[in-house]
Design a protein around this nucleic acid. Structure first.
Lengths: 333, 333
DNA sequence: ACCGGCGAGTCATACGTATTACTTGATGCG
DNA sequence: CGCATCAAGTAATACGTATGACTCGCCGGT
C-alpha cells in the first residue's frame, strides 16, 4: 500500500534500475540481450525480475529516436476487403518472426506519398509495401525502401506479383476445351496493373485460338456496373457464349445480366471470375474462377522488403494461381 | 551543386534553422504555429520558406518522446472486410480533422492486450478503438483510453453501438406483416455482443407475436456452415416459413439450403440478412436486410475517444439501422 | 536620467533509450 | 612487487523536438 498514491505512470528503465539497485545502462544492457561478458548472470536475473515485477515495457518513441529505426513497415492497400486481409496475414507472420510490426493503411485513390492519410504515420516506419498499383509506379516512396505487390514485375521496383497471364490462359483453355469461341470480357475499369494484365492475357489467349473472337466492356468494380457492362456484351451483335470477368464481384453482375435476359448460367452462357473470394461459393451456381495465393503474396513481399532493409536486392517474382472449376461453365448450347 | 556529396539525410529542425539563419527553437516555434507575439512575421516567413525548400518534416519519434503523445489511435477490428473498411473511413475522417492518425489492426481472436500483434505497436498510441467484442469486455487496455464499437453499450466502457434490437424488431415486424409466424434463426456462433443481441431481440420480438414461434441453429460465419445450419432448420419438425439470418453471408447459405431442397426464395421460404453488405445485391433474389450506418459508427466512436483524451467522459450511444426491403421476402405460401 | 515593460529571439533542458568510453577492484604473471 | 589484463558495471552522451526561462535592445513615461 503506497499511501502517498505514488506515480502510477508507466515505468521507465530508470525505475527498473532503481528497483534492481543497478544503473540504467545495466538495465538497458540486460534487456537488450547483448550482455554476455558484461553483466554477471546474478545481476541479470535481478534486473529481469525487477522489470517483470514492474511490468516494464520499453518506450517505443525513445527507442526509435535512439536507433533511428522503428521496426515497423507500412502496408498500403487499395481497399479493406478479405483478399487483402489474407495478404496482410501472410506479411504480418513473416514480419513478426523478425520482430517487425506491420501497419495497415487503406489507400484508395493511389494518391501520392503526400496524401494526408499517409502523412499521418509518416515517420515511424522503416519501409513500405504497396499492393495493386497502376502503371505509374511510385519509383521511390519518400526515400523509403519499397516493395510492390500484385503490380508490374517488369518495373524498376522489386515486385511480387501473380502469374496473371498463366491464370487467364488457363481460363481460356478451359472454356475453349468446352467448345467456346466467342468470348466477352467484363473488365474492371481500374488503373491497376493486374487488370491491365488480365485484359492483355485474355486478348492474347483468345487471339491465339483458331476461330476465337472477343469483345470487351469495362465497368467499375461493383455488381450493378458489372451487370450493365455484361448486359451490353450480351446484347451485342454477336452474343458471346462465355463471359470472362476480371473479378468475382463482376461475375455476380454477369449472372444478373444473364438472368435479366432469361439466359441460364451455364446452360446459355458460361461465366468465370478471378480471385476466388468467399462470394464465389455464395453464388448460384458456384463460380469457376482463379484462386490466387494471397497469403504467399504477403509473405514473399515482406521477405523481399526485409531483404531490402538488410541491403540485399531482392528479385521480382510471380506466384502461380490455380484454376478452380465449379458449376458456372459448361459447353455452349 | 554540392560537389562534396553532402549528407542527403532527412533534414532536422536544426538544418532548417541553419538555412534560415535563426535558432532551432525559433524554427520549432514557427512550425508549431504558436508563435504570435514571439516571432516577427518576417522571420516566420523566412523559416517557413526554408522548411519548405528543404522538405522538412518533423521526426515523429522525437516529437512523441518530447510530448508524451503520439497523436495516433489504434483501431482493432475482428477481420478485414468491407464493413470495417467503412467504419475505418468514418473514424479516420474525424481523426484527421483533429490531427490524429488511425492505425488499423486485425485482431481476429480477441486475444488480450498482450497478444503479439498488438505488442508490436504497443507504445506509439494514445488511445484504442475496439470493434465488435464479446461480453468479456477488456475493462481497460493497458491503461490506455478505450472506446468500444458495436459492443454492449451497457458496459462500463464508453461504447458506440447499433440499435440492434430495433433493427431486428423491424425485420420481424416486416415478416409478421407478410403473414409469417414460424421463424428460423440462422445464428452466428461468434462470441460478439452484436450477435448475442440479435438473437435475444429476435426471440423477444417473435415471442411477443401472437402465434409466433422460432427455432435456432448456430454456425460459423461462412456460407457452407450457414447452409448446413439453415438446412437443419428447414428439415426440422415444423418447417419455418422465414429464415432470419444474423448476417448477409449466412443468408447466402440459407439460399443454398433452400435450393438444395427445391424450395424457392421467397416463394416457399423468405430469407433476411443483416448488415447490407455488397453481397446483398449480388445475390439472386436480392436480399432484404438491415443497413447499418458503418461510417457513422466509426465517426461517433472516434469523437468519443477524442473526448476521452480531452478528459471529458463520453456517453454511450446506439445508432439506428434501417430495414431495406428487397426481393427475398414475400407472404408465406 | 532611470526604470518598467515589451517585442523578438535564444539558451538550456528534458523526454527514455542504447551504446561508447571510462572506472574500479581483483587477479595473473614475470 | 609492478604492471597488464579482465570482469562487472557505471557515467556520459546523442538522437530531434518543444518549451519555460532568460537575454538584449529599445521605447515611453515621469
Amino acid at each position: 500500500m503506497h499511501a502517498t498514491g505514488g506515480p502510477a505512470a508507466r515505468p521507465t528503465s530508470r525505475d527498473v534500475a532503481r528497483a534492481a539497485g543497478v544503473s540504467q545502462s545495466t538495465v538497458s544492457l540486460v534487456l537488450g540481450g547483448k550482455w554476455t561478458g558484461r553483466v554477471s548472470p546474478a545481476t541479470a536475473a535481478v534486473v529481469q525480475d525487477a522489470a517483470g515485477r514492474l511490468g516494464y515495457r520499453p518506450n517505443r518513441a525513445a527507442r526509435s529516436l535512439r536507433l533511428g529505426t522503428a521496426r515497423t513497415v507500412l502496408f498500403l492497400v487499395p481497399s479493406i476487403v478479405p483478399f487483402f486481409g489474407a495478404v496482410y496475414d501472410g506479411a504480418a507472420r513473416v514480419a513478426a518472426r523478425h520482430g517487425f510490426g506491420v501497419v495497415l493503411y487503406p489507400w484508395p485513390d493511389g494518391a501520392g506519398p503526400a496524401g494526408s492519410p499517409f502523412a499521418a504515420s509518416e515517420e515511424a516506419i522503416d519501409g513500405v509495401l504497396v499492393s495493386s498499383v497502376g502503371p505509374d509506379v511510385p519509383a521511390g516512396f519518400g526515400g523509403l525502401p519499397l516493395v510492390l505487390l500484385d503490380s508490374d514485375p517488369a518495373g524498376p521496383v522489386p515486385t511480387v506479383a501473380f502469374a496473371v497471364e498463366d491464370g487467364m490462359r488457363a481460363v481460356v483453355a478451359h472454356l475453349a476445351a468446352l467448345g467456346h469461341r466467342r468470348f466477352g470480357h467484363v473488365a474492371a475499369a481500374l488503373d491497376q496493373w493486374t487488370f491491365h494484365a488480365r485484359g492483355a492475357a485474355l486478348a492474347a489467349a483468345v487471339d491465339a485460338l483458331p476461330g476465337g473472337s472477343w469483345t470487351r466492356a469495362a465497368a467499375a468494380l461493383d455488381v450493378a456496373a458489372a451487370r450493365d457492362a455484361a448486359g451490353a456484351l450480351l446484347d451485342g451483335p454477336s452474343r458471346p457464349t462465355a463471359l470472362v470477368c476480371d473479378d468475382d464481384v463482376m461475375a455476380a453482375g454477369a449472372y444478373k445480366a444473364a438472368r435479366l435476359r432469361g439466359l441460364a448460367v451455364p446452360g446459355d452462357v458460361s461465366v468465370t471470375g478471378f480471385d476466388d473470394e468467399q462470394l464465389a461459393t455464395a453464388l448460384e451456381p458456384e463460380l469457376t474462377t482463379v484462386r490466387l495465393p494471397a497469403g504467399d503474396l504477403g509473405a514473399r513481399g515482406m521477405t523481399a522488403l526485409l531483404d531490402l532493409l538488410d541491403g540485399r536486392r531482392p528479385a521480382s517474382v510471380a506466384l502461380p494461381g490455380a484454376l478452380v472449376v465449379r458449376a458456372s461453365t459448361a459447353p455452349p448450347r
